[in-house]
Nucleic acid binder design. Structure first.
Lengths: 233, 233
DNA sequence: TCACAGTTGATGTGATCACAATAATGAGGG
DNA sequence: CCCTCATTATTGTGATCACATCAACTGTGA
């Protein structure tokens, strides 16, 4: 009986724990840009905002800290990290390896059904870009990439990539990159050419890195404000 | 003044927190094989063994859980994971990418001083292998690899690789692999040939994976004991 | 207007408690 | 000897409390 249930694909054991829900809530907040890099958080503040005790918040936040999505400063303060350009470049180097690996593995397992799904996402992204729907575009971009990575059938790898996205999530509020590399990636996948698909994803990431860094450099020059950071929530 | 202190290289802010010390203690226990894969742990049990309250143990264990060095089963039980062969292969695929990247970056930054240090470690490993000092060999192997990865100057990458070693740590109790690939890696580094060094490390890892998996297959056949697992500590 | 020292308030850490849920145990029947 | 079921012991989760430590504010002096 138990064996039978285990054979059903992805029963999604919704870990019905409070800190688990808070964890996912904070994740969403980070990805959506609801909290700014540099902003500081506190257990009690979040607990009050969520209507719970600080305990499950502590569990959720500590988990995000070990995933580097939040940062515990030695000052006994918790902030959402503001990555240096060096750190951003390190993250992207790792992402290119890991997402490249996932793409290459995906090429060996992709089905025609998956390909039409990917092309559909691509079209939607094009539409979103034309009408300037940034929010929607970012969401579709996530789904496009992780649709590919899921094909690899490597759950731990997917999890690692997710944590890397989460780290730079707060910094890409409103970024609307090109998608020609996406088309090249799908082409590579459709030819089951892992190397080509991998290269396309690598280019996509490199380009995203460049636009992010150049925007950061611009912001840095026009606003070198060392104004005192406030604590929120 | 504070600025002056920040310029000193790596002041190593030893976070003097109790859960931090427990975390490192558990890490050591996992790497040394003091706890067996499949063994289950409990907060209170560990706390009693360490003479503290369950609280800091909980923090340390939860951190190890998000690093996949421990596993929280849905049964409300914590065990040290017993990886399936599929999972092991996934970990090694990721390791080859990540440790390959680190090696390649290291080749661009390695100094002659580093090279002599690496050759020294290599010699020590040879000696340890000859006298069958497994414990020492494993330790030297760690130092050799991470000496290289440290050269890359990518702290997050190093941390990721460490967590991957920690995951398979409990399974490589007594394994004494070859080191000819180590020599090839040092050669590649000395020629500043990143690709060659990367390839050598990849071969080293592939070989380690093969011996681990074949040993696991052998153990599995000779002892298909589904005997009830006991809870320890 | 700014800088700086003194005080107050809030924070993370760790300990302890309560509780529902699960695992371990042991008795009773096949 | 093995399986089944009821009882007991132990577990992770979450809440609350105590405390040393630092951040944020206040007022004073230039």
């Amino acid at each position: 009986m138990a064996r039978r249930a285990a054979e059903i694909k992805l029963p999604v054991i919704e870990h019905d724990t409070l800190h688990g829900r808070i964890y996912h809530e904070l994740r969403k907040a980070l990805m959506s840009g609801a909290v700014q890099p540099g902003q500081s958080l506190s257990y009690r503040g979040l607990a009050d905002a969520l209507g719970t005790s600080p305990m499950p918040v502590r569990d959720a936040v500590r988990r995000l800290i070990t995933e580097r999505a939040l940062e515990a400063r030695p000052n006994r303060t918790i902030i959402v990290p503001k990555l240096s350009i060096e750190q951003i470049e390190e993250v992207y180097k790792i992402r290119i390896e890991l997402e490249g690996l996932a793409t290459e593995e995906a090429a060996a397992k992709v089905t025609d059904r998956d390909l039409t799904e990917l092309r559909g996402l691509e079209e939607e992204m094009e539409a979103a870009q034309k009408e300037g729907a940034v929010r929607k575009y970012v969401d579709l971009n996530w789904r496009f990439h992780f649709k590919i990575y899921a094909l690899a059938g490597m759950p731990q790898l997917t999890e690692l990539i997710e944590s890397l996205w989460l780290q730079i999530g707060p910094m890409i509020n409103k970024q609307l990159a090109a998608f020609d590399h996406h088309q090249a990636a799908v082409d590579g996948l459709s030819r089951r050419d892992g190397a080509a698909a991998r290269l396309a994803i690598a280019k996509d990431l490199s380009e995203a890195r460049e636009t992010l860094i150049s925007r950061l450099r611009a912001d840095q020059e026009e606003a070198p404000r060392p104004s005192r950071a406030r604590r929120a929530r």
